[in-house]
Amino acid sequence: MVYITSWDDFAERSIQLFRADPESTRYVMKYRHCDGKLVLKVTDNRECLKFKSDQAQDAKKMEKLNNIFFTLMARGPEVDTSEVAGKEQMEQPAKKGRGRKQ
């Protein structure tokens, strides 16, 4: 499987893939700390899209894609995601306290 080099290309195609078949598409994130590598994969078992990076700035872009996928998967593939990407930054501080993680 060849890695997609352009982030925008990857993000757009992975969302398309999910919308085409929401029930069998999964989104996998792999993080390897010792090598400082991040690999993202979106597949519906027929087509596989992968993206690889070692840049911190790509982790930020990934955060937006995470939010898009959370929204699409939890709320449904019809939901408009255009407002999701920008929203998460404001949501964060307010919701943090309730997490009770550490």
Binding site: F18, P22, E23, T25, R26, Y27, V28, M29, K30, Y31, R32, H33, C34, N66, F69, F70, L72, M73, P77
Partner: peptide, 13 residues
Amino acid sequence: STEKGSVWVTLKR
């Protein structure tokens, strides 16, 4: 997994 190993997180509907 900081010394060795990876973490995978999968999202699926």
